[in-house]
Amino acid sequence: MHDMPTASPVSRAWAAGRRWLDGRTVHRHTLDLLVPLICFGLMLLDVPGVAEANESLNRFSATAVLAVGAGSLLLRRRFPWIPYVVALALLGWLHELTLMQFALYKIGRYRGRAAATMATLGYVVFAYALYLHERWPEKQADTLLEFLSLVVPIGVLAAGVGVAANRQDLVRELEVQKGRAAALHAVQQERLSVARDVHDFVGRELTLLAVRAEVLAVRARGEAHQKDFDELSDTARKAHRILNEIIVQRAREENATPGIAALAELATEGERAGSPVVLDIDPRAAALSPLRQAAVYRVVQECLTNAVKHAPGEAVRVRIELDEVYLRIEVTNGLPRSLPTKEPVSAGTGTFSMGERILSMGGTLEAGRRDGEYRVSAVLPAGV
């Protein structure tokens, strides 16, 4: 991460130079060295005046002192207050302002607005005390107003730029974290998609294989191959159980999607929002695979959300039926008696997302007004 705010032309040129150096970015340790060197280069311009104003220093010793001061910037990331204290010392001794500008910027950059404000106030008070004691800087400021017009803008500008850079650092870090979260979510969704495909397609074939083997075992009853067919059926069923326990269970853990048992909590939330919810759930639904239960939960969740938004106060009935072949989900609610005073916030993609989920599992979904109520009906293979 560079040390200048990206919003300024200087920072953009700085970033371009970094990309030019190695095609992508300068190593952090290289940048840590460049900043003190830049500061020292600017301070070298003051060496003649410093040596002339201070009899205890010549040009060589003044250069060495300024080099030590600039070197304190090597600690700016972890200990930004150290360059600040050194800058105050140089300010009181040699009336040197260059390092103070860097120090205030670094405090704003690495410690934020509150620290930058405190450091700027401390710098102004310290400089004002020097002004009262030594009439510093005598040549540049003959009056207090002239003095403050020199000291205050330097501190406020340097600290303000540092605070702006700090905020941009936080924004960039947030973007990085959001990117990581999005990438992780994409990976989890891909894993869930693979698990769903394996469960739906491979699981179906394993079920057919087990049933077919049982039929052949019945036909071969009393013959030598009956035992082989029975073993084949048991193996297919065992493979299917392993499929559920390993692939599907892990997919559910990664996706963290609730199942049938969590519908009661959804109903409670709907009632708190003002829409009474009646659940009619086939007890056998609790034995559905995790992917089927996740589909049921998401459909009911979306329907209850839509009912609260578009038909507040209307009762909602949730019915889940299960037989040997199909799983049926039906959610109905009354239509609103009057138009809402404010248009509800809605992306308009909820029904589409429900349909995509059901379709991906080999089912169908219908939604719309019917017989004076709004009804969502989904039918999909029961699975195992």
Score class of each variant (00 low, 15 high):
Ala256Gly: 06
Glu245His: 04
Val215His: 15
Ala217Leu: 11
Ile246Ser: 03
Ala217Glu: 14
Ala224Phe: 08
Arg212Val: 06
Glu253Lys: 03
Leu216Met: 13
Ala239Val: 04
Asp228Tyr: 04
Glu245Met: 02
Lys227Glu: 15
Phe229Asn: 02
Arg237Ser: 04
Leu216Pro: 05
Leu232Gln: 06
Lys238His: 11
Asp228Ser: 13
Val215Arg: 15
Leu232Asp: 01
Val248Lys: 01
Ile247Gln: 00
Gly222Glu: 12
Arg250Asp: 08
Ile247Thr: 03
Ile242Ser: 07
Ser233Ala: 15
Leu232Val: 09
Arg250Val: 01
Ala256Arg: 14
His225Val: 13
Gln226Asp: 12
Ala217Lys: 08
Glu253Arg: 06
Asn255Thr: 07
Ala213Trp: 05
Ala213Ser: 15
Lys238Trp: 09
Ala239Gln: 07
Asn255Asp: 12
Val218His: 13
Ala217His: 08
Ala224Asn: 11
Ile242Val: 07
Phe229His: 08
Ala213Glu: 08
Gly222Tyr: 11
Asp230Ile: 10
Arg237Gln: 04
Lys238Ile: 02
Arg241Ala: 06
Arg219Ala: 14
Glu223Asn: 10
Ala213Met: 10
Ser233Gln: 08
Ala224Ser: 15
Thr235Ser: 08
Val218Ala: 14
Thr257Met: 11
Val248Gln: 01
Glu231Met: 06
Arg252Gln: 11
Ala236Cys: 03
Leu216Val: 10
Glu254Gly: 05
Arg250Leu: 03
Ala236Tyr: 00
Glu214Thr: 12
Glu214Asp: 15
Ala224His: 09
Arg241Ser: 06
His225Met: 12
Ala220Leu: 12
Ala220Ile: 05
Lys227Ala: 15
His240Gly: 09
Leu243Met: 05
Ala236Trp: 00
Glu214His: 10
Leu232Lys: 02
Arg212Gln: 14
Ala236Asn: 03
Ala251Gly: 08
Ala251Cys: 02
Asp234Ser: 08
Gln226Ser: 13
Ile246Trp: 01
Val215Pro: 00
Arg250Gln: 05
Glu254Trp: 02
Arg241Lys: 06
Ala236Pro: 03
Glu245Trp: 01
Val248Arg: 00
His240Ala: 06
Arg212Gly: 15
Asp234His: 06
Glu245Ser: 05
Arg237Phe: 01
Asp230Gln: 12
Glu254Asp: 10
Glu253Gly: 00
Arg250His: 04
Glu231Asn: 07
Arg237Val: 01
Ala217Cys: 12
Val248His: 00
Arg219Asn: 09
Asn255Gln: 08
Ala213Gln: 10
Thr235Met: 05
Lys227Gln: 15
Asp234Ile: 07
Leu232Tyr: 02
Lys238Arg: 09
Gln249Arg: 04
Asp228Phe: 04
Asp234Lys: 07
Val248Met: 01
Ala213Asn: 11
Ala256Val: 02
Arg219Gly: 13
Ala224Asp: 13
Ile247Val: 10
Arg212Met: 11
Val215Ala: 13
